[in-house]
């Protein structure tokens, strides 16, 4: 389901805009000089909680583990009133139906990774089957991985067609396309992969699987946000952004919000358009929220690990 009606409107991805890494890093450093205080901080922290895709993606995942996480997603810290739930939980396809059942009526969405996550090294039929299975199990969102190997060989058409095929398999589920930026090598390639994903039908673009050491960074995320902005100005279509992996501190998460606000504007500062893929971020945010309320710095012992 390619949104771009005429093939003529598709750019040649070889000519995606160049990105200057040093300039990007200067800009992200600048976001990090923004000082977020008092009410701004509280509002921001609650936004962060509400943007989290609480994630477990391990070989040792069990129904018990997933259940506990689903409870946490809805009850982040009941001693603080009016806390939002997280945006979603993110699990493997085999856990989707369980998670769906646990989250009924909560508004928390179920996201499932698919397409032979995390490597994506499987035949197309397997990836489509993987996706359809997750959707059939009730997944609201699909987090697919692109074929990085094909991307590196310059076979952009393959990568594009694969995303388009998965998009079709998603039906009504929203599609997040994981670029695995830590394997792409340069920011220019991050930009190129972002463009391919958006034009091929991604609803979200996502940095990482969380399975390799360099996951989401502010520079990579900024490159992707700029790609989203350029795409929006070209097509009028909003695309969501999901940095995943490596964001575990509230302060850093707030700086991501600053970056989104100053790049794409307030319209993107909802969980419809921005997500954090994270497992331990929520507790640090909660500690900061309690600190804002009580004035005392907090200990991890008082916040549940799920």
């Amino acid at each position: 389901m390619i949104r771009i009606k005429s093939k003529d409107l598709l750019p040649d991805f070889k000519f995606s805009p160049a990105v200057d890494q040093v300039g990007i890093e200067e800009r992200t450093a600048r976001f990090q000089t923004r000082s977020i205080k008092s009410e701004t901080k509280v509002v921001g922290l609650k936004k962060v909680l509400n943007m989290i895709d609480l994630t477990t993606l391990e070989g040792k995942d069990t129904p018990g583990k997933v259940k506990q996480m689903c409870y946490k997603a809805q009850h982040l810290h009941d001693s603080i009133p009016d806390l939002p739930s997280t945006a979603a939980v993110c699990v493997y396809p085999s856990m989707v139906s369980l998670a769906k059942a646990e989250l009924i009526g909560s508004g928390v969405k179920v996201a499932s990774v698919s397409t032979a996550f995390p490597s994506g090294q499987a035949p197309m039929e397997v990836k489509i089957g993987d996706t359809k299975f997750a959707v059939d199990q009730g997944a609201d969102e699909i987090d697919m991985v692109i074929s990085r190997g094909r991307f590196h060989t310059g076979d952009y058409n393959f990568v594009f067609d694969e995303i388009a095929a998965i998009k079709e398999a998603c039906g009504k589920a929203r599609l997040k396309v994981i670029l695995e930026t830590g394997e792409l090598g340069t920011l220019d390639k991050v930009r190129r992969a972002s463009d391919i994903a958006m034009y091929a039908g991604a609803d979200f673009i996502k940095t990482s699987t969380g399975k390799i050491s360099v996951a989401a960074t502010m520079p990579v995320t900024l490159v992707m946000l700029e790609a989203i902005k350029d795409y929006y100005y070209k097509t009028g279509i909003m695309i969501g952004m999901k940095p995943a992996g490596g964001i575990s501190k509230a302060k850093l998460a707030l700086h991501y919000l600053v970056m989104v606000r100053e790049t794409l504007g307030d319209a993107w500062l909802t969980n419809e358009w921005f997500r954090f893929g994270a497992s331990s971020l929520a507790n640090d945010v909660l500690m900061q929220l309690v600190k804002q309320e009580t004035g005392a710095y907090q200990s991890a012992d008082y916040f549940s690990i799920d």
Binding site: R34, S35, I36, K37, S38, E39, T40, K41, V43, G44, K47, K229, Y232, L257, R261, E262, L264, G265, D266, A267, L269
Partner: peptide, 10 residues
């Protein structure tokens, strides 16, 4: 894009 409203810095 609207960069001037919404979540503002205290």
């Amino acid at each position: 894009v609207d960069l001037n409203s919404g979540w503002a810095y205290a």
